[in-house]
């Protein structure tokens, strides 16, 4: 067939396609810019002209009810605000960090692995998490008789250095033979959470590369006693430096048994 013939065959299709598209467009304009604003505006107490102008974008759409300026007093649970520069510097281990870490040896061990299980291991912990906790001790958002004084003696740069230092240290070795048989419901809490109680899975934030808030610490290879004590503190409101009650609201829903078993799980199970 010649090109002229082909064009002749295409002609009705072209015309109909154009008509259909133009009519859909026309309907959308009439419906979206005229009918819908008028009908919905009536319910919001707007006259037709204002509603149409707002839909088209000539008048600002909001707020339909003016908000009073908030005179609420800020009650931050922490003073930490993250920035890309801060997070980048927390990934760089420097010799200065090792020097600052000498002050931590007595309680947290020579290599960041605590001899007393009441104290947390720091080796291999997320640098972002260590930074946040030290910052909170310094500002008083988290309370501990020893740590508040120590953190107040550190400047901002030292906190970054020591956090990066411990983050780069190798974690505590776990002896897999000491791991207890774990109850099924505890594994379910860790991996899937409990939707009926609104409990997200522990691992949705604390798992390896899980996502979630960036300041969440890793829990595996941590000391059982320390983990259990923190969960109890969150539950009883004794510790409240978690942003937007993320941990307080979780711990409040856990039973004593679950707290003990979860602490045990993270302290003894490999690779979580």
């Amino acid at each position: 067939m010649k090109p002229a013939e082909l064009r002749e065959i295409d002609r009705p299709w072209r015309i109909w396609a154009s008509i259909i598209i133009v009519s859909i467009l026309a309907f959308s304009v009439v419906f979206g810019f005229l009918i819908l604003p008028i009908v919905q505006g009536r319910a919001a107490g707007l006259d037709a002209f204002t509603a149409i102008c707002r839909a088209v974008g000539i008048l600002p759409g909001s707020p339909a009810v003016r908000q009073p300026t908030s005179e609420a007093k800020a009650q931050p649970t922490t003073q930490v605000a993250w920035s890309t520069d801060l997070i980048r510097s927390l990934g760089q281990s420097t010799p200065a960090g090792a020097e600052v870490a000498q002050a931590c040896v007595a309680c947290h061990g020579e290599r960041g692995i605590a001899a007393d299980p009441q104290n947390p291991n720091l080796a291999g912990q997320s640098g972002v998490a260590i930074y946040k906790q030290l910052h909170d001790y310094k500002s008083g958002s988290r309370v501990h008789e020893v740590m508040n004084g120590i953190a107040q003696g550190l400047d901002g740069r030292q906190i970054i250095d020591v956090a990066a230092h411990f983050a780069a240290s190798p974690r505590r070795d776990l002896d897999p033979t000491t791991a207890e048989v774990v109850d099924e419901d505890i594994v379910r809490l860790v991996e899937r959470g409990d939707p009926a109680r609104g409990l997200p899975a522990c691992n949705s934030c604390h798992g390896f590369n899980a996502g979630g808030p960036m300041e969440t610490p890793t829990l595996s290879h941590q000391n059982r006693e320390y983990l259990a004590r923190q969960l109890h503190a969150f539950r009883s409101d004794g510790r409240r430096n978690d942003i937007y009650t993320r941990m307080r609201s979780v711990a409040a829903k856990l039973t004593d048994r679950e707290i003990d078993k979860l602490a045990n799980f993270y302290a003894t199970t490999l690779s979580y």
């Binding site: 908030s70 609420a72 007093k73 800020a74 009650q75 931050p76 649970t77 922490t78 003073q79 605000a81 993250w82 920035s83 942003i243 937007y244 009650t245």
Partner: peptide
């Protein structure tokens, strides 16, 4: 969003 929890309307107490 970075300072939402620190100041103003969306602090925890408000």
């Amino acid at each position: 969003p970075k300072t939402l929890h620190l100041t103003g309307e969306f602090t925890e107490g408000n």
